[in-house]
Amino acid sequence: MSRAEVSPRATSEASSAGAGRTTWTAAVTRWVDGLVPKGQWLPDRQPVYVASWIYVFGVACLSSLVVIIVSGLVLTLGGVTWWHTSSFGHFVNSVHLWSVELFFATMVIHMWGKFFMASWRGNRGMTWATGALAFFGSLGTAFTGYLIQTNFDSQWISTQAKDGLNAAGIGAYFNVMNLGQMVLWHVSLLPLVVGGIVTVHVVLVRRRGVAPPIDATDPTADAGEKVAT
């Protein structure tokens, strides 16, 4: 596949540099450009302190999400009850289940790591908060997945879970015993919500960079003088 030819004419890239532009398009371009510092969208270098296996669990979690989405999309091809009657469908369901277990395992290990590193330091509070929200969003998404298995598990889980949701007033609008409603929440609404939160989370991570070690001194400040904590 050949690469698209670059037009010799002026492009939006060139015009976005002109900060004086007042078009809405230019404003959006400036906003996107400013989301993360220049060169930090996908840098090929990281601060030297990023040297521990604990740093790989965020990416491992993201990878698990990819496997979840791909296996989930394959399941949607056959419909809600397909996997009960097709051995391939059952296999895809198994991949979906185990990628979810891996997703939560890696996400929780990622959270343990970030907690012990206090990675919310240096104005990274929203990074932690969006990560925590992604966790809770994932809980809800996984839960609706259990409800739409259309098997004994779904019967039991839905009839049990309704009581807590009803007591909180949520069940009045979110009926866990309504299969049709739960299918749509699980395959459309909730994945979009989780995907959106995860996107914001990743942008925030790239925006602020990886939190420096606790008690680290600013290497650009006067020779190794410790920053008071």
Partner: peptide, 28 residues
């Protein structure tokens, strides 16, 4: 916590994020 230094002020080392992601995806 007191002031936390800017992450971009530290010395860096090569870190291949795309390779990390591809390997993680393969492993998972």
């Amino acid at each position: 916590w007191g002031p936390t230094p800017d992450a971009h002020a530290f010395p860096t080392r090569r870190y291949d994020l795309v390779k990390e992601f591809v390997i993680a995806l393969a492993v998972v």
